[in-house]
Nucleic acid binder design. Sequence first.
DNA 1: GCCGATTTGTCCTCAAGTGGACAAATTGAA
DNA 2: TTCAATTTGTCCACTTGAGGACAAATCGGC
Lengths: 350, 350
Amino acid sequence: MRNVTIVHVAEKARVSVKTVSRVVNNEPTVTPDLRARVEAAIEQLGYSPNIAARRMGGGRSFLIVAFNDRTLTLENWRSDRGNNWIDRMQYGAMLRCDVHGYHLLCELIDLESDQLARRVQHVLSTLRPDGVILTPPNCEDPTVLAALKKAQIPFVRLGSAQAGPGARVRMDDQAAARQLTEHLLTLGHRRVGFVTGSPRFLASRAREDGYRGALAKAGLAVDESLLVPGDFTFEGGVAAAEALLARADRPTAILAGNDETALAVLHVARRLSVAIPDALSLATFDDTPSVRLSLPPLTTVRQPVAEMAAEAVDILVACAAAKDGKPPRGDRLLPFELALRASTAPPPAG
Amino acid sequence: MRNVTIVHVAEKARVSVKTVSRVVNNEPTVTPDLRARVEAAIEQLGYSPNIAARRMGGGRSFLIVAFNDRTLTLENWRSDRGNNWIDRMQYGAMLRCDVHGYHLLCELIDLESDQLARRVQHVLSTLRPDGVILTPPNCEDPTVLAALKKAQIPFVRLGSAQAGPGARVRMDDQAAARQLTEHLLTLGHRRVGFVTGSPRFLASRAREDGYRGALAKAGLAVDESLLVPGDFTFEGGVAAAEALLARADRPTAILAGNDETALAVLHVARRLSVAIPDALSLATFDDTPSVRLSLPPLTTVRQPVAEMAAEAVDILVACAAAKDGKPPRGDRLLPFELALRASTAPPPAG
DNA sequence: GCCGATTTGTCCTCAAGTGGACAAATTGAA
DNA sequence: TTCAATTTGTCCACTTGAGGACAAATCGGC
């Protein structure tokens, strides 16, 4: 059977091809009568306009590309710990694309590759998507941003703590860290350790600022020796935890830069027989499955990743529909949630 | 800046458009000399052929669509337990697509919807993919299969226990269940309970067959009362576990139909103070992160989902490249692995 | 019944590539 | 040199839909 084209629909509805096109593209100058006839024909024939053909005349492609970091994705996949940031992003974006009649393509890029610019350019030029979603750490990479700008394709940066080109959708990492720190202070903790994250992710810096802000607001001086560098990996977290827990004046609570780090702290604490939460409170960011399943489940900040991705899709689709060529701008903050769990409690007496 | 087209490349390399096309499509009748010149021009201009345009003349679309079950995907996403079957499928397929210069689109379909056929048809007709990957339980749905057949698009069914149209890539669920059961028998267990899965998934039936086969091979009669129906959900698993553990002649080991069910068994056992593995051994299928992070980590069968997806992509790409219109056939079995963990041990003495 | 406004149709161009027919140029061998 | 084979170029058709210009048909009001 041949493919059903706009011509078949026109014949069946006994109208011109042009009229079918007008109906499909929701042009206002069609009488309800004719519109109904055309829609009936479309339904009966099971017609759907071919995306490739629509794209040809310079129209929309109905495609959105999400660029994910290759290394991160692979680690994520191989990891036993199920860090599902990217998965959640994808679910949110996919569902929203569906609503708009769009399609989501996930592409991997490798920031370390010397072919990076070429790779980004290739994907953009072969697919010609209507918009691009960038996830950390791609959303802060100058090469990627330059390639996007050159191709003049609208893009949204997801979860980036850095101002810059394109639109931005994120949660307020600084406020989240502040609230999490305040939660610990309210419980009575006064010596709160902080394992910082990878400098590659600017969100890590924002979290540190929030931590400092909460201490300052409570009138407490920041003990710089309680800030230990991690790098968002398990190994980095282990080293940092060992440094913090070996101290004579051990902190009574630790804020971990991300979940991977938190699991490392949990691991070290168990090895050193430091009971959580009795002897040490532990809080972290991201709320991946691993920290919900850990023993005890950890207090975290739930980042609204899927909602952020959905918002990004909305922005890009609106931008494509407007076709005024204006790149999307703005910085949308989505609300986060504290998930208070069994890993945080008042500090031990004395 | 205008988009770089094949015409620009031709001008730069001082050859005809036709020759560039021949180079891009790897036709043999081009001298190495000219080929090099064209490739240099492509590189310098950063040219990538536009997928939409290639598709027009009836050529390949370089797109592969994976149809996932909407309900399952959403449950998966909302679940705290991170059942990442679909994610693993996607990683495997995406990586392989990348190698072939293909792109993966994940689309959700809802088997319960009365618009199902229309939905499948719409996606196929608007995207015109070169191939389709079906995941459970879509891969056994007659409406979906009929729509695929009508559209004449090659497809691979992933993880389906049922013979049928299209190619099939899967692991041997029956053998896996047999080996898992044998593992328990070798440890000394004689009363092994089995919580069956949802009849929607035929793999569940295959697992049951494997369980029966192992008992038969060991010369043991099957106690039908030890087979309790679950439905692959946590709630179903709870009910089944309660039934099994309430018995006077409680089984010393339980084989759960999938990980979700196993977690339910774990939950009930803890509530009833049945120690695992001391009083009860527990084994399951799928090896999702949740059963690696559980206490104790569970003995499972690791299903090579990503590898299966990669194999599916290879099949579809080969099929598209052959362009002889022959739909892919065959049934590839990929090796699974037993992950023996702390949840299985010899039965309690006495 | 006429005028003007709105709706619908006709016709053409354009997008970016593929593929076929066939001619022209180049190469190699006899 | 000449013929044949191979490589390269020319030219055209084709894919499916969008969109613009403009003509034709229809409708409503008076």
